[in-house]
């Protein structure tokens, strides 16, 4: 019950947060000097045509009127029309966002699978070779610019060895699976399309590694330090004293306590990966939200910029909500509180 009330409260809180974000984004994008109508029409535009288009786009109205109109549209499920692609922004988001989410989720899976075990190993072998190795590995992950790492990976695994593809989401000439979620791996699995599934996974590997480099580093370091504190506590010493095997102590007793701050960080890491995907998408020609947002900004396509910002904000809030809800299941103390 407590958990439900907590979730409901958090969902309600989303509304003022999103309104705040929308005001901020709207204000910022409109203070960028530049005239969207001029960008659409180019230098060949006639002054009358320009004026007509400005009127048509509602650019002559005061900013608060434009904002009010935009918000009124949102509550009716209308995110406006992209001036860049001439399509409804909602359609564009549905088309571009699955690619970004697929990549981000893939990167988070890598982060979990590598980051937490590395952190545990590092903590339990403190100052041994394994610890030094994982610490340097984590440091490199955090320190290496994604852009550079991506190019290095491409140079080696794509050009030299030819084991992984270099760009895009599928092999050239392969058609995407039927649209269900828009994530090619998931859709291919659901429709049992194995060649597409394999191609989609192969295309995810290099961008996934690049995107997860930073988050793996973050999670490894956090797991290590958190586990180190836990491992020094009395109950762990007791566990060892009563003769429990090391793996049982580490993964059964220590991890449950040690993982708490890591889970909080996971929510932040997800946000970090969503933001970082802009650069990674550029290196690997990944047709996702990042690419779409960059194009939108270059064309002063306000509806598209707003749409992307709001969508990412919602995702970020939701993921953090999920993360916070997980405490209820991991930490029994919260249930009785």
């Amino acid at each position: 019950m407590d958990a439900l009330r907590f979730i409901a409260k958090r969902l309600l809180l989303m509304i003022p947060i999103l309104i705040g974000i929308s005001i901020l984004t709207f204000a910022i994008s409109n203070t960028i000097p530049g005239d969207p109508a001029r960008l659409i029409l180019g230098p060949k535009a006639t002054p009358e045509g320009l004026e007509a288009l400005r009127e048509d786009m509602g650019l002559n109205d005061p900013l608060y009127v434009q904002y009010g109109r935009y918000m009124a549209g949102i509550f009716q499920g209308d995110l406006g029309e992209s001036t860049y692609s001439q399509r409804p922004v909602a359609d564009d988001l549905i088309r571009y966002s699955p690619a970004t989410f697929e990549l981000t989720i893939f990167a988070m899976v890598i982060t979990l699978l590598i980051g937490i075990p590395f952190g545990i190993i590092s903590a339990s072998r403190k100052d041994k070779i394994a610890d030094q190795f994982t610490r340097i590995f984590a440091l490199l992950g955090v320190a290496m610019p994604a852009f550079w790492l991506g190019l290095l990976l491409l140079l080696f695994f794509y050009l030299r060895l030819g084991v992984f593809p270099g760009s895009g989401r599928l092999d050239n000439g392969m058609s995407p699976p039927d649209y269900i979620t828009g994530m090619y791996t998931v859709d291919a699995l659901l429709t049992g399309n194995w060649p597409v599934f394999i191609s989609a996974v192969m295309h995810l590997v290099l961008p996934g590694i690049t995107l997860s480099a930073v988050t793996v580093g973050m999670i490894t370091r956090m797991t290590r330090s958190s586990m180190l504190t836990v491992l020094q506590s009395d109950y762990i010493r007791t566990a060892y004293a009563k003769g429990a095997p090391e793996n049982r102590v580490l993964y059964g007793h220590a991890l449950r306590n040690g993982v708490m701050p890591v889970i909080t960080l996971l929510g932040m890491a997800f946000g970090h990966a969503l933001g970082g995907s802009v650069l990674v998408e550029a290196v690997f020609s990944w047709p996702g939200l990042g690419q779409y947002a960059v194009n939108a900004i270059n064309y002063l396509d306000f509806p598209a910029v707003m749409g992307v910002t709001l969508l990412i904000a919602i995702m970020f809030i939701l993921v953090n909500l999920i993360v916070d809800t997980m405490y209820f299941f991991i930490d029994p103390r919260l249930k009785h509180n």
Partner: peptide, 20 residues
């Protein structure tokens, strides 16, 4: 004719070297 969007010039260069 495939018009492929490769946003990063360095990536495009690698793909050209590879013959893709």
């Amino acid at each position: 004719v495939n018009i492929r969007f490769v946003s990063e010039a360095s990536t495009a260069r690698l793909m050209l070297e590879k013959g893709e």
